[in-house]
């Protein structure tokens, strides 16, 4: 997993509540057996005017000029502002894969769906939750100023606005530690292999029916 420490990035505002994972990456692209290449199909149904299928040359497809990701001023954005319940719906990890492949490294919003939130941390994508009033203000500023950027410091747990105002955010210490160091969960967990074996042996005695097949 790629480390996340600090990020100074252009911000794109996605001003919709309940953005679901079907919208983030439509199901036809989930047929891929790979982890990469989902970026061109991020928000496919909103981003393009035609219907997308896997294997197309997406650079030749007609873009929806009104969709925020297509506006020239947001080209190259690495931070996305989001509204309530972003990432609701399915457990597809293709959603954070698509966001990352597109170039988004951090999300700043009011709330995220549980599974999506979890999936982000497994991939080095940082979802930041801030109070509604602060997020509202970020949307206002971002829409008003071309080239609006934010500075994110994971170690300090801060988001710094261009006007110098510093917003603090919470993150679970263990997730933070893994993200800062780009640590692979499996490797960390296997340090406890003996404990897992011990737990399993006890369980096998107490509830043998769980180990029948």
């Amino acid at each position: 997993m790629e480390k996340f420490t600090q990020l100074d990035g252009l911000v794109v505002p996605l001003d919709r509540a309940n953005v679901d994972t079907d919208a983030i990456i439509p199901k036809q692209f989930l047929k891929s057996i790979k982890r990469s290449g989902f970026g061109p199909n991020l928000f496919d149904e909103w981003r393009y005017l035609d219907h997308g299928e896997p294997g197309q040359d997406h650079s030749k497809r007609p873009l929806n000029p009104d969709f925020v990701l297509n506006l020239p001023r947001y080209r190259g954005a690495s931070i996305m502002l989001t509204r309530d319940n972003f990432g609701c719906g399915s457990s597809r990890e293709h959603a954070p894969w698509a966001l990352l492949d597109f170039g988004i490294r951090a999300l700043v919003g009011t709330s995220f769906a549980d599974i999506f939130f979890n999936n982000c941390f497994k991939n080095g994508l940082l979802p930041i939750t801030l109070p509604a009033a602060e997020v509202d203000e970020l949307f206002r500023q971002c829409t008003a100023q071309a080239g609006y950027r934010l500075r994110i410091d994971l170690d300090a747990q801060t988001v710094t606005r261009p006007d110098g105002k510093v917003l603090r955010f919470d993150v679970e210490p263990f997730r933070k530690y893994c993200l800062l160091n780009g640590l692979d969960d499996i490797g960390l967990t296997l340090r406890h292999a003996d404990k897992i074996r011990e737990f399993e042996a006890r369980r096998r005695l107490e509830q043998p029916w769980l180990f029948g097949q």
Binding site: S91, E93, I186, H192, I196
Partner: peptide
């Protein structure tokens, strides 16, 4: 019973466990 992402699918396959916080 709960849904997980693909990284966690790999984690369960490899370790029979998951990292989780109580809800």
């Amino acid at each position: 019973a709960f849904g997980i992402g693909t990284s966690e699918v790999e984690h369960v396959l490899a370790t029979q466990t998951l990292l989780a916080k109580k809800a």
